[in-house]
Computed example of a mutant assay.
Amino acid sequence: MSEFVRTLAAPSLRLSEVFRSIQGEGELAGTDSLFVRTIGCNLRCRWCDTPYTSHAPERGERVAVDDLAERILNEDCEHVVLTGGEPLLTPGVVPLTEALRAAGRHVTIETAGTVFRPVAADLISLSPKLSNSTPDGRWAARHEATRDAPAVVARLLSEFDYQLKFVVEGPGDLPEIERWLADHNVGRDAGRSRVFLMPQARTAAEYERLAPRVRALAEALGFRFGPRLHVARWGDRRGV
């Protein structure tokens, strides 16, 4: 087999970027983390903050999983976050997460919960998409039909440690969140501590305006407020 054919057959994925920053959201907010962002998404959220991996995708870089794992492991960083786009779209995340976990890294996967892969993950950071995510135009029907996959969600929640992060625009989103939790049989009693409400904000000014309101809503209902530290600090700046 030629080296060219062997390279094509090796597990690979389309990579947008790798960068080191603080985790801005959820249980591990503030943790030094290495972010690995893949290209590709099966949704088109109206307020998507990474269009270069979704509705306006860049070409990116096709990388072999072995090479990417070596690159990640050369960084002295315990926490690795696979994000996108939707990282679970690509089969290459399975051998990548296996290599990272075998090397002792803590692996978080940020996903919308519409695709399942048997990954090796310490934490599934599941961000269900509410109706406030549905765009106008030709993608609306497809997005609406795809944004909730109960069978996938059930499997993710049963097989992994998880947290739930809901993007909130205002009080009108709360009944839908409660229905989602009831439909998926999660979020009762102590389980509500796994649920984070996050302000829908792309700029620091938007975050400053919305964060106190969302915090009050979360506390009133027994949920947790989900900070977005990267937005508060850097706005919509890329690579941080």
Rank of each mutant, 00 (worst) to 15 (best):
1 M>P: 07
2 S>Q: 09
2 S>M: 07
2 S>T: 14
4 F>G: 03
6 R>Q: 13
7 T>R: 15
8 L>V: 12
9 A>Q: 13
13 L>D: 02
17 E>N: 12
18 V>T: 15
18 V>H: 08
19 F>M: 12
22 I>F: 15
24 G>W: 10
24 G>M: 10
25 E>I: 13
27 E>G: 07
29 A>I: 10
30 G>M: 10
31 T>F: 12
35 F>Q: 03
36 V>I: 09
39 I>R: 04
42 N>S: 05
43 L>K: 01
43 L>G: 00
46 R>V: 01
50 T>H: 04
52 Y>W: 10
53 T>Y: 00
56 A>L: 12
57 P>N: 01
58 E>D: 07
60 G>P: 02
64 A>M: 13
65 V>S: 03
67 D>C: 08
69 A>R: 08
70 E>L: 13
71 R>L: 14
72 I>Y: 06
75 E>I: 05
75 E>H: 15
75 E>Q: 14
76 D>Y: 06
76 D>C: 09
77 C>M: 12
78 E>L: 15
78 E>P: 10
89 L>P: 05
89 L>G: 03
90 T>L: 14
91 P>H: 11
96 L>A: 05
99 A>F: 00
101 R>Y: 02
105 R>P: 00
105 R>H: 09
106 H>I: 11
106 H>Y: 15
108 T>C: 07
108 T>H: 07
109 I>Q: 01
110 E>I: 05
111 T>Y: 01
113 G>F: 06
114 T>F: 07
116 F>R: 03
117 R>L: 06
118 P>E: 11
119 V>K: 08
123 L>K: 06
126 L>K: 02
127 S>D: 10
127 S>H: 03
129 K>H: 02
132 N>T: 11
138 R>L: 04
140 A>H: 04
140 A>N: 00
140 A>V: 00
141 A>S: 09
142 R>F: 13
143 H>T: 00
145 A>P: 02
146 T>R: 14
146 T>E: 07
146 T>W: 13
148 D>Y: 11
151 A>H: 14
151 A>C: 07
152 V>D: 06
158 S>H: 14
160 F>L: 09
163 Q>I: 14
164 L>Y: 06
165 K>H: 10
166 F>W: 05
167 V>Y: 03
174 L>H: 01
175 P>H: 01
176 E>K: 03
179 R>G: 02
182 A>E: 11
182 A>Q: 08
182 A>K: 10
186 V>N: 01
189 D>I: 02
191 G>W: 07
194 R>T: 06
196 F>Q: 03
199 P>D: 06
205 A>H: 12
205 A>F: 11
208 E>I: 04
216 A>S: 11
217 L>T: 00
223 F>L: 00
224 R>M: 00
226 G>T: 03
229 L>A: 08
231 V>I: 15
233 R>C: 02
